[in-house]
């Protein structure tokens, strides 16, 4: 089943008198349960594509249909609702509320979904448990390590049971080992049947996905399945840790 269909998407920014074509004629389809990496050097338009896929921004031209609904012409509040219900974001810089504990951070999307407080707490606790932070529920971001912060962010993305998880350089601010742990977590999430879109510029990270879409100058350069998918292995990580 198609979740995402982009048809001839273009995004043009006007910087002063100049027009910047961030995306030119991008068309793609993503099915339910896919694990897709979007790759490209900086300036290739991958951030713009991510913003459009994540309904944070709307395209200048073209059609974006999300689960059969045309979202390219929705207003801010309709987009907010799609983001809230259908999309779970994971950012490079975690983007947690610094003064709120893990539980409240994970609860946040449920607050905006209008879920009553008691149900909200239970679901947030479950999500934290799922990412292995059952014992860090009341820690604030500054009391958590980088990896733990990203886990909180992943719990926040999962808690609404969204149609897609959209991760933008999720390991960019983490060391290799922690990054690998996070990628392992993404793999688990994928194996549970979730759809993941991973935006990265690292080949090695992209190879965790099952399909890689490469962008260059605002256009799709290639769109191919990964032949030898890299499946993270916890024991391999441990071995690596010991050898260091």
């Amino acid at each position: 089943m198609n979740i995402i269909t982009l048809e001839h998407i273009a995004k043009i920014y006007e910087v002063g008198a100049e027009k910047v074509h961030a995306l030119r004629d991008v068309s793609l389809k993503i099915d339910k349960g896919e694990y897709v990496a979007i790759m490209g050097p900086s300036g290739s338009g991958k951030s713009t594509l991510m913003n459009i896929l994540g309904c944070l921004d709307t395209p200048t031209k073209g059609l974006y249909s999300f689960k059969g609904v045309n979202v390219s012409e929705m207003d801010d509040n309709e987009l907010a609702e799609i983001r809230n219900r259908e999309i779970g974001f994971v950012f490079q810089t975690f983007n947690l509320l610094p003064r709120s504990d893990a539980l409240h951070n994970v609860e946040l999307p449920l607050i905006y979904a209008g879920v009553p407080s008691d149900v909200r707490k239970k679901r947030a606790e479950e999500a934290l448990l799922q990412v292995g932070l059952g014992d860090r529920v009341h820690h604030k971001p500054n009391e958590l390590s980088g990896g733990q912060r990203q886990r909180v962010a992943i719990a926040r993305a999962l808690v609404t049971e969204p149609s897609i998880i959209l991760a933008d350089e999720p390991t960019g601010n983490l060391d290799t080992k922690t990054g690998e742990e996070i990628m392992l977590l993404f793999n688990e999430i994928y194996e549970q049947g979730n759809t993941i879109i991973l935006v990265t510029h690292e080949e090695y990270i992209a190879e965790h996905a099952e399909r890689i879409i490469r962008l260059r100058d605002g256009q799709i350069e290639s769109d191919e399945p990964v032949q030898n998918r890299y499946i993270p292995d916890l024991s391999a990580i441990r071995e690596k840790e010991e050898s260091e």
Binding site: G54, L56, D76, N77, A80, E81, R83, N84, R85, F89, N95, L96, L97, L108, P109, Y112, A113, R156, T160
Partner: peptide, 16 residues
């Protein structure tokens, strides 16, 4: 500003 960005990204509507 950043906090507002986070809230909006995860689905806060204008009126919220």
């Amino acid at each position: 500003t950043r906090e507002i960005g986070i809230r909006k990204a995860i689905g806060a509507k204008t009126h919220a």
